[in-house]
């Protein structure tokens, strides 16, 4: 099935470690225009039964997209991103995104992504990405965000 040189089904993408800081949660919520109080106001989040603020789904979606394009190189284009949320991303936790190539069809690859944090699987999903020939090898090295400050 694989028509893409150097990419095999079952191949694992290098993990990306995301420190879940308060700053990331709030910056992601505001950048995605999501002003739900549970994503920025600890007191109100607690009143709603949550132990703290937590990451919104749009930020998770953005991080999953970034993870896949970081892995495949910046000529890769996202076609589909489908995610399901589980354990919330609370401040102080760390989420590690991992991906596995599930299918390769022509220039298109389907990647299964899991982001696990300290309490479980925060996100499971599938990303369909279109790759251009010659830009296919998975890079080595550290994809992690620089350390954020947890206010």
């Amino acid at each position: 099935m694989s028509h893409i040189r150097g990419l095999r089904v079952g191949e694992e993408l290098p993990p990306l470690e995301i420190p879940v800081t308060r700053t990331l949660i709030v910056a992601g919520a505001l950048a995605s225009r999501d002003y739900q109080d549970v994503h920025h106001d600890t007191e109100l989040a607690k009143e709603k039964g949550s132990p703290d603020i937590f990451m919104n789904i749009l930020t998770t979606n953005g991080l999953v997209g970034r993870y896949v394009t970081d892995c495949f190189g910046h000529a890769a284009v996202l076609r589909k991103v489908a995610i399901r949320l589980g354990a919330p991303n609370y401040p102080g936790d760390t989420m590690v995104l991992r991906g596995t190539v599930a299918e390769v069809d022509g220039a298109t690859a389907r990647v299964d992504v899991v982001g696990a944090n300290g309490i479980g699987k925060h996100v499971t999903g599938t990303v369909t990405v279109e790759l251009s020939e010659g830009d296919l090898s998975l890079p080595e090295g550290d994809l992690s965000l620089p350390e954020g400050e947890d206010a």
Partner: peptide, 30 residues
């Protein structure tokens, strides 16, 4: 602002021929 928050340094999202990160789709409707 989105790229800063996500730590996304993809050059496709900056410069004169920039496109928006596809995952911003919902953000434009908020």
């Amino acid at each position: 602002h989105w790229c800063e928050a996500m730590g996304d340094e993809n050059p496709a999202y900056a410069g004169p021929d920039a496109v928006a990160p596809p995952t911003m789709l919902q953000a434009w409707t908020m």
